[in-house]
C-alpha cells in the first residue's frame, strides 16, 4: 500500500503544496500537517518543506524548532521513519539537532535562484537509496542561507560515515565540502538545500528530483512494513 506522508506547514512555509503534489506523483499519499499539531500518528514519514517558517526570525529554523509538531518529528526520526527537510526544512532540522551543522548566509551574500548540478555522493540515505552514487542531477536551488557549515571533526565524520548525500558540482554558495545534503547516522533523516519537488517534469526544466522522492517514498513504504 502507498505510504502516508505528512508535510509540515509552519506559518511562512510556501512549498508545501508542491511537495504534496510531487510526493503523490512519486507514489505516496500525502497530507498537510499544521505546525501546532502534536501528533504524527498514522504517518509513515514526514517532510519539512521550504519557505520561511515563522518568517525566518532570529535565524532560519530557530523558532520553528520549538513548534509543537517538532517533538513528534523528532520521535518519528528516532523511531527510524524517513524524515526529509528541503531548503528551509533542512535549516529547521539542523536547528532542531536532528542533522549536524548549520546553514549560513551564502558566500557573496546573494540570494541564489538557479538550477544547478549535484552529484549523488552517498546511496545510504532514505532519499538516495534508489540512486547510483556518482549520478549527476539537475535541481533548482532558491536560498539565501544555503552555505552548509560544520567544524572539521564533524565534516570528517560525515565523510567517514558516508553521510554526505549530495554535493554541488560547481559550489554556488560556499558550502563546506560542496555539501548540498546530509543525512543522520541511520540514514533515515535527510536534509538538502535543492528542491526536488520542483524538478518532477521535463516541462519544469528537469525531472531529476523525481527519483529522489521515489526513493524517499519507497523508504517510507518499507519503514511502514517493519514498524
Amino acid at each position: 500500500m502507498a505510504p502516508r506522508l505528512g508535510v509540515v506547514v509552519f506559518p511562512g512555509s510556501n512549498c508545501e503544496h508542491d511537495v504534496v503534489a510531487a510526493l503523490e506523483q512519486a507514489g505516496a499519499r500525502a497530507d498537510l500537517v499544521w505546525h501546532g499539531d502534536r501528533s504524527l500518528a498514522g504517518f509513515d514519514g514526514v517532510v519539512v518543506p521550504g519557505g520561511f517558517a515563522h518568517g525566518d526570525y532570529l535565524r532560519p529554523g530557530a523558532i520553528a524548532r520549538f513548534s509543537p509538531v517538532m517533538a513528534a518529528v523528532g520521535d518519528l526520526a528516532r523511531a527510524g521513519a524517513p524524515v526529509l527537510g528541503i531548503c528551509n526544512g533542512f535549516q529547521v532540522l539542523t536547528e532542531a539537532g536532528l542533522l549536524p551543522g548549520a546553514l549560513q548566509k551564502n558566500r557573496g551574500l546573494r540570494f541564489i535562484c538557479d538550477t544547478v548540478e549535484v552529484t549523488v555522493s552517498s546511496g545510504r540515505s532514505a532519499l538516495t537509496r534508489g540512486l547510483e552514487p556518482g549520478t549527476v542531477l539537475r535541481l533548482p536551488i532558491n536560498h539565501f542561507e544555503g552555505n552548509y557549515t560544520c567544524d572539521d571533526s564533524t565534516l570528517a565524520r560525515l565523510v567517514e560515515e558516508d553521510r554526505v548525500v549530495l554535493r554541488y558540482v560547481d559550489n554556488p554558495n560556499g558550502s563546506t565540502g560542496d555539501i548540498a545534503g546530509v543525512c543522520n547516522e541511520a540514514g533515515n533523516v535527510v536534509g538538502l538545500m535543492p528542491h526536488p519537488e520542483r524538478a518532477t517534469e521535463e516541462l519544469l526544466g528537469s525531472a531529476d528530483g523525481l527519483p529522489l522522492l521515489e526513493s524517499f517514498v519507497a523508504a517510507s513504504a518499507s519503514a511502514a512494513v517493519t514498524a
Binding site: L58, R59, A62, F66, T94, E95, P100, G101, A102, Q104, T149, C150
Partner: peptide, 8 residues
C-alpha cells in the same frame, strides 16, 4: 538555547 546557534 535560542538566541545563538551553538554550532556556529
Amino acid at each position: 538555547r535560542l538566541l545563538a546557534n551553538p554550532v556556529i
